[in-house]
Design a protein around this nucleic acid. Structure first.
Lengths: 223, 223
DNA sequence: TAGATTGTTAATCGATTAACAATC
DNA sequence: TAGATTGTTAATCGATTAACAATC
């Protein structure tokens, strides 16, 4: 069978990276950043696996989805690998965000300075409460939700953060999609209805507590 | 082989439920709650699968990890199934929480009234800033972190929510463990070091943004 | 009873781990 | 060169989907 293939046949294929792999990348990135700050220049998959409590095999498999970043007999250059994973994650450049909902959670997120360290810059907030419009959180201005589409079309906004009650979330998500937003970080406790090409990441906070609750409860039952 | 087994041999086994199944339970619970509120009394796995955009097979497999909740030819009683999943998740009873860190995120979480609807009651907050001690957020008092162990031993606290900077998180987590806490919802951007029997659920907010960023970036690259 | 739909077994698919030849 | 460790193939494990007999 091999003789029928010519160079490039297989390389052309757009290999789909599994969600599990992508979900692990931020953790690699964090560990490599810490290791780099410790002044360590090189690391083997084995050493990294011990730190991260995963298998060395998984690390090598994960990384080789994106290319060969290591060197036989040597391991990986920490800083280089850190930068490469940053590129893969797309955080080598700035992403402009808007936050919809200037309530407690919206404010907390806007005040969360760690986002900017990773290139995520919050450009504006939106709400409907008259008393909030015009206020500023860390230099980020709150606009009325009516001006949402206008703002998005005038600025380079890639990602919207949705921190509003669930009964309004679906309608606002549709407006975001119509205005051209391609990615939504959804804190509202509902699934959004968006086209296939719009990316949604759900953060349902009470779901995390329920998972804890399950495990706490099953512990006590068996004892 | 079968003739060697007597009744009960297999039933004794403590079947481990996979994490993937448990992670799906809160979503089932949410959909069933909504369906119940619509006044729908029964539903088949097929109908539910259409709503939830999963396979009917997966629903039946998931549920049958915990018992047969349905009836052939009929489907599932919505309210009954809702309650049963609630019991499995351990939210048929109250869980007392404490929140460590009364910053923006800690305040937002304490103000998040949805937790109480699911039986998660925040009993106290802790911080080190003198100007915060004694203040109240929604009737929840802020105590000094020095009194943490004392408070935990005097009250029935199952779960701690950690919303403090990462450089303090590991040390505080150790104190929580020593004080007897069995479950931690960790918002600090670091992995905690805890014994095997302590349950940690990590919520690394910037990781979610990085996952979005990856997908936004890979979209633009291929076009 | 006939039809519907479960509970459960079997088949498939995908992800993780192990093994090792390639090579620095 | 000898030793170390990668990149990658093969083996294993687990999770999802399909199929269908059991049964309401």
């Amino acid at each position: 069978m091999v003789e029928f293939l010519t160079t490039g046949d297989i390389l052309m294929e757009d290999k789909r990276i599994s969600k599990a792999v992508i979900a692990r990348l931020p953790r690699y990135y964090r560990y490599l950043g810490e290791i780099s700050e410790e002044g360590i220049e090189r690391i083997s998959s084995k050493e990294l696996s011990v730190r991260m409590k995963v298998t060395a095999s998984q690390i090598r498999q994960d990384l080789n989805n994106f290319g060969g970043f290591g060197q036989q007999g040597y391991g990986y250059n920490v800083k280089y690998l850190y930068n490469e994973i940053g590129k893969i994650l797309g955080i080598d450049r700035q992403h402009n965000l808007i936050v919809i909902g200037a309530g407690n959670l919206g404010n907390a997120l806007t005040n969360y300075t760690n986002f900017e360290k990773r290139g995520f810059v919050i450009k504006a907030m939106f709400d409907v409460k008259p008393q909030l419009i015009g206020k500023e959180i860390r230099k980020v201005k709150i606009y009325h939700l009516d001006t949402l589409e206008d703002y998005i079309s005038k600025h380079q906004i890639q990602i919207a953060v949705l921190s509003i009650p669930k009964n309004e979330a679906i309608a606002v998500a549709k407006r975001l999609v119509n205005a051209g937003i391609k990615a939504i970080l959804n804190f509202a406790h509902t699934d959004l209805e968006v086209p296939e090409d719009v990316i949604v990441e759900n953060v349902h906070l009470s779901d995390f507590l329920m998972k804890l609750s399950y495990r706490v409860s099953s512990l006590t039952e068996n004892q």
